[in-house]
Design a protein around this nucleic acid. Structure first.
Ligand SMILES: Nc1ccn([C@H]2C[C@H](O)[C@@H](COP(=O)(O)OP(=O)(O)OP(=O)(O)O)O2)c(=O)n1
Ligand SMILES: [Mg+2]
Length: 1175
DNA sequence: ATCCTCCCCTAC
DNA sequence: TAAGGTAGGGGAGGAT
């Protein structure tokens, strides 16, 4: 059954007729003898040949699995393909550099089997240096002329029965003799075993022999491995059809018994159905790479493209979201790359990666104390699809493009769908269906499997909700994919554990409870199930997730590790694919983790797998993994490639395609504001022995791949993101290969050596008229309504528990998780440790959990109910800190903590920035209207000296701090402009200010220019120091740029007033959002603070503090909107998204925040070369 | 040793 | 019909 609406190809005559023709093809072998039209024309269209010296730096074959559908991602089944290593890369180099040596092996092509003496590398070198061609793998028997081997297993004896197999001495002694000695004198005797190969293989091997004496006429041919004379063509001519090979495939296909015996290299099946379609000019024009919108269309529908794009976007979002949480990487910290001020200045000193690394994340938690969670949606695409198709729940279904019926007629006709299944439901998995499998394959296993179409928009939307939820719970987070992330919840878990100990309830697993809370939130927000694995390292957390699925959580604890690991296959370890698994298997004969752990030494593993990999595996099989989360990954390359549907007929087609692809790459570069200095072109070329149409519909089939790179320079000799330049260079590279365009099966362009592009640097660059800035091509959205368009914002208000309480909290130095959330991650964890520690020491008053309204009760240990909340802790003052706690910390951390406290001391009245700031422990998001103040009202009422406006008051810091507001409303208005200061201003500034003032006074400001008030208040406060302050505050931003009284600012060391005002501003406009005017004014003020030359570093620090504070205020209220707005601003989503059900105020504030941030960034960049860091 | 460059391999 | 992309870890081997 199919759940998709459209039937197959109803409107496509070519498609229908091809289908009809194919259905009777069972006895119509002519498909194999017939040439596909487009391959027989355009004989003059080959790309230009290349210089021999620059030819093909390397070539690898990319064979298809024997039968397409054996699954590229999951199953093995084609070890031959994966085993291939590309030793021929260096071959070209070796060959070029050794022209002086006698080319005794010229025209010969070797494969070296098994262990040899001298070792493979040496033999390879000898072969290459003397004109021979070395094959790392044997799947191209049609090319290999000789096999070198010392001994053969019975299987190999059989396989090589009809080949020329010689001992290594032949090579060695021929080289020594300086001439080619007769190989049969070194023959390895394999003749006793009768050859029982099936016919297909046999004919292949005849090819081997017949080819063996043909010498490649050029090095191009050699490295390209096109030595079959009937195949090789001068550029511009056409290869002959490969009827033989083709026919073989068809024959073999009909012989079920041949299949298991058939070696992969002989299995070049074709796709007659596709061949039929390719006969139609109009069909080709509409459905292959020659279509002019092919690239766009293709990307719109490519799930893998979406997956990759989303991952990159999410990484960036998380990076942004983390920003401002890393206090230690702030001003003056030379390890910063997002730098601020002095850090930027110091940036002249090149930063050592190692240093940055070490200063960054270092064992805050003892290995065993970490708590890592791995969260992953259950069959994500399917789950998302089922949300709106509840009737399909519980059935075997899969997400794929195919909407065709899997009726008997089509399957028996050999047109089983080659559409790949992106995700299969667990019911389908019970039949053996796997992600990545072709639909046809799946139908064999599960004839009744249903299909669900892709809904890329929905996946992205769910993903953002998912990440919002995770971010609200995590101390640190690393993006794994659109549906998967790693969390560090060490601090939370520690807090919970100690809370539990305190309560006397300790049988519960708080990590599991947290996991269940998270799962519930995800379920509520998206309607989808996710599973969560918990353990003390990343490896084990991932493995735990496997045990948790579906729809569960699992904590893999220490005592379970050994037994859990022992039963696993190495293939289950992250980072071990089929290739490495086979390597292990062939080396040690087992792939069980337990066996490896027991019998294989670390050195042996390192020897075979490489130092790092070997060591990693050694640890993995024991459940050991010290990898730390990295939520701060920056992109190092940008690329775009298409390896599907590439079917060119002329070089003009190829050139046009390169152009399109270049535009795509340029667009991606420009979207993230970078340029690149190096370009790599990747080319997939049909393997000469492969059919024109591979089994997978429009797939690339068996291919050789080639890479070539070169520097790319824009106008100023600088890096570039110019589509025209990229296209030119890429086209040059492609031409240099000299391939027949009709053999191309894949093209990719990668840009490396990225550098940030400052706004000013876009000089001579060709700018694309982009509508869509970034993001995957939207499936159904038009170009302007790009990508995953819609967003998010908790449909199910995924509010973190911690945010739900607060209004009820007592005042005092309470630290709830909201506060923690505002802290730098490192510090947060530290506080947790320390809170736990003091608690354990009996200082209950400092670490006593304050019950939230709906903390998980013992009666509901799973804590599954919504609204479970994190306990609240009190943070002690520095003096209360138990010194012994500090002693236990690493010196580095200790210093950090101490400096944090010092910072508080240095700014006695400062309520902010992140760490020292003890925040109002309130939760506006819960009672949004409660404390809201009418803007106009507050504008008026602000004047009289009063401790605090309505608000929160719960903020003990605020209430304790003596307020300095003692200005009257009248006075305020009068002081809008200070005459004295005004007189000192330059003429143009005077004008500006006058204009601004007039503007200000004109309308009564309907919603309120609160910032004006705010500025005035502050001005009043510091009036005794300098009147210029009032000018600064109450006038238009532009004037501030000319602000002339640095000493005054310097003296304004106490930012608390400003913070107060900032707080008030936010509070008073909590319901309405900031006015543009206020934003501009505030931004202008901060911008002036950045003028270090005039105001000094301290004012800059002030600006940073205020920004941090502002950020905090926003986070405390609208944390769910932060990511959304970041996404929006990076054009990942649309602003006016109709999916966005949340109130607009939060987003308005965040937009304001980021707008000001951008303004400061710009200044910072111009001044210091780096962005303002709020870390 | 340590870097750089060119891959292979893996993951979703 | 069908949409087999893409970034980063790491190994090999050469340059420094
Ligand atoms: N070969 C693959 C593997 C995955 N995906 C997409 C679809 C999946 O839904 C999503 C997430 O991949 P997972 O590996 O997490 O698989 P699922 O979420 O589908 O299943 P589960 O996580 O329950 O095993 O990525 C894909 O398109 N092609
Ligand atoms: Mg998943």
């Amino acid at each position: 059954m199919s759940f998709s609406s459209d039937l197959f190809g109803s409107e496509d005559p070519d498609f229908l007729s091809a289908l009809a023709a194919t259905e009777i093809l069972g006895d119509a072998p002519q498909a194999g003898t017939k040439r596909v039209p487009h391959t027989s024309s355009h004989t003059g269209s080959a790309l230009a040949p290349l210089e021999a010296e620059t030819a093909t730096p390397g070539a690898t074959a990319y064979t298809d699995a024997e039968a397409y559908g054996a699954s590229r991602f999951g199953e093995l089944g084609d070890y031959m393909r994966r085993k291939r290593v590309k030793l021929q890369v260096q071959n070209a180099d070796l060959a070029t550099q050794s022209l002086q040596k006698p080319q005794i092996f010229k025209g010969l092509q070797f494969y070296i089997n098994g262990w040899t003496m001298p070792p493979l590398q040496d033999l390879r070198k000898m072969i290459m240096e003397h004109g021979g061609i070395f094959h790392a793998y044997l799947d191209k028997k049609g090319l290999v002329t000789h096999i070198i081997s010392t001994e053969l297993t019975p299987a190999k004896v059989k396989e090589f029965a009809r080949m020329k197999v010689a001992k290594p001495e032949w090579i060695v002694q021929s080289v020594e003799a300086g001439k080619l000695l007769p190989w049969h004198e070194y023959r390895l005797d394999v003749g006793k075993v009768a050859a029982v190969d099936q016919s297909g293989v046999q004919s292949k091997q005849r090819t081997l022999f017949s080819v063996s004496e043909t010498r490649p006429s050029s090095r191009i041919d050699a490295s390209v491995e096109t030595s079959n004379p009937s195949e090789r063509v001068a550029p511009g001519s056409k290869p002959a059809p490969q009827q033989m090979t083709h026919q073989e495939s068809l024959d073999r296909k009909g012989d079920p018994k041949a299949a298991p015996l058939a070696p992969p290299y002989a299995a070049h099946k074709s796709n007659p159905f596709a061949e039929r379609l390719m006969e139609s000019t109009t069909w080709r024009a509409a459905h292959t790479s020659v279509a002019d919108d092919y690239v766009d269309k293709y990307y719109q529908n490519s799930r893998l493209h979406h997956l990759s794009t989303w991952k990159a976007e999410l990484k960036e979002l998380v990076r942004k979201a983390r920003e401002g949480e890393d206090e230690k990487r702030r001003i003056g910290d030379d390890s910063s790359d997002g730098l601020s001020m002095r850090g930027a200045e110091l940036h002249v000193v090149p930063k050592s990666p190692a240093k940055a690394l070490s200063s960054k994340t270092k064992g805050k938690w003892k290995e065993e104390d970490r708590v890592i969670m791995h969260c992953d949606f259950d069959s994500f695409f399917v789950s998302a699809g089922l949300v709106d198709r509840p009737e399909l729940r519980g059935k075997p279904v899969a997400v794929c493009h195919s909407s065709s019926k899997g009726d008997d007629a089509s399957t028996s006709a050999g047109v089983a769908s080659t559409s790949e299944i992106a995700s299969a439901s667990y019911e389908a998995r019970a039949f053996g269906v796997k992600n990545g499998m072709s639909l046809g394959q799946a139908r064999k296993l599960c004839p009744d499997i249903g299909t669900i179409p892709y809904e890329f928009d929905k996946y992205k939307k769910f993903s953002l909700q998912f990440y919002n939820i995770l971010l609200s719970h995590a101390d640190d987070l690393q993006v794994v994919s659109v549906d998967e992330a790693l969390l560090d919840v060490s601090a939370k878990a520690m807090l919970a554990r100690n809370a539990a100990a305190k309560d006397g309830a300790r049988a519960r697993d708080y990590a599991i409870e947290l996991a269940e809370t998270i799962r519930d939130e995800i379920k509520e927000a998206t309607g989808c199930e996710a599973s969560i694995g918990i353990a003390h390292n990343v490896l084990l957390a991932r493995l735990a997730t496997r045990a948790a699925k579906p729809a569960g959580s699992f904590h893999l604890t220490r005592s379970q590790i050994t037994s859990h690991m022992a039963s696993l296959d190495v293939r289950d370890l992250p980072g071990v694919g089929n290739n490495i698994r086979e390597k292990i298997k062939s080396k040690w004969g087992t792939t069980t983790c337990g066996d490896i752990a027991e019998n294989v030494s670390k050195d042996a593993l390192r020897q075979t797998l490489g130092n790092v990999m070997g060591e990693k595996i050694w640890g993995f099989v024991r459940g050991v993994d010290s990898t730390e989360l990295n939520g701060d990954q920056k992109r190092k390359s940008v690329s775009a490639e298409v390896n599907y549907g590439i079917r060119f007929e002329t070089s003009a087609h190829a050139e046009a395609f390169i152009s399109r692809l270049s535009e795509e790459v340029a667009r991606r570069l420009q979207a993230i504001n970078v340029r690149g200095a190096s370009l790599t072109l990747k080319v997939m070329k049909r393997d000469p022995t492969a059919p024109k149409e591979p089994p997978k519909f429009l797939g690339h089939g068996a291919c050789e791949t080639f890479n070539k790179s070169k520097p790319v320079l824009g106008p100023g000799g600088k890096a570039t993101a110019d589509p025209v330049i990229i296209a030119r260079e890429a086209w040059d590279l492609l031409k240099s290969f000299g391939f027949d365009p009709s053999d191309l099966r894949g093209i990719g362009i990668q840009i490396q050596k990225l550098e940030d592009m400052d706004v000013s640097a876009k000089d001579g660059q060709t700018m694309l008229n982009f509508k869509r800035i970034e993001g995957p091509k939207g499936s159904k959205l038009d170009a302007t309504k790009q990508g995953m368009g819609k967003v998010v914002e908790g449909a199910g208000k995924p509010v973190a528990p911690s945010r739900k309480l607060g209004a009820e909290l007592p005042s005092g130095f309470d630290v709830d998780s909201e506060f923690l959330a505002a802290m730098p991650m490192d510090i947060r964890e530290e506080i947790a440790v320390w809170a736990g520690h003091t608690s354990a020491k009996g200082q209950e008053e400092l670490a006593q959990p304050t019950a939230g309204p709906s903390r998980p009760s013992p009666a509901n240990p799973a804590g599954r109910q919504r609204g479970a909340s994190a306990p609240v802790y009190r943070i002690p003052t520095f003096s209360q800190l138990d010194a012994s706690v500090l002693d236990e910390l690493s010196p580095e951390l200790r210093k950090e903590i101490e400096s944090e406290y010092k910072a508080v001391g240095a700014l006695p009245n400062v309520a902010g920035p992140p760490p020292p700031a003890l925040l109002p422990a309130k939760a506006q998001s819960v009672t949004p209207t409660r404390n809201r103040i009418d803007t106009r009202h507050i504008t008026k009422q602000l004047a009289p000296k009063r401790s605090k406006p309505v608000s929160p008051s719960k903020n003990s810091l605020f209430t304790r701090r003596p307020t300095k507001l003692d200005i009257s409303a009248t006075e305020l208005t009068e002081l809008d402009i200070d005459p004295d200061v005004f007189a000192m201003l330059p003429l143009d500034v005077q004008k500006e200010q006058l204009a601004a003032q007039r503007q200000l006074k004109k309308p009564p400001a309907p919603v309120g220019d609160n910032l004006k008030v705010m500025g005035a208040v502050s001005a009043r406060n510091s009036r005794s120091r300098s009147r210029s302050v009032s000018v600064l505050y109450s006038n238009a931003p532009r004037a501030q740029a000319h602000w002339v009284d640095p000493p005054a600012l310097k003296k304004l060391t106490d930012t608390s007033d400003l913070q107060d005002l900032l707080t008030r501003w936010v509070e008073s406009s909590e319901a309405t959002g900031p006015t543009a005017k206020d934003l501009d004014r505030f931004g202008g003020f901060l911008a002036d603070c950045m003028d270090v030359d005039r105001t000094g570093d301290s004012s800059m620090e002030k600006a940073v503090i205020l920004m941090k504070w502002w950020q905090h205020l926003c986070r405390a209220r609208w944390s769910n909107d932060e990511l959304v707005v970041i996404a929006e601003q990076r054009s990942l989503i649309e602003e006016d998204d109709d999916w966005d059900e949340g109130p607009a105020v939060g987003k308005a504030w965040w937009r304001g925040f980021f707008a000001v941030k951008a303004r400061l960034d710009k200044i910072c960049k111009a001044r210091f070369g780096g962005k303002l860091s709020l870390k």
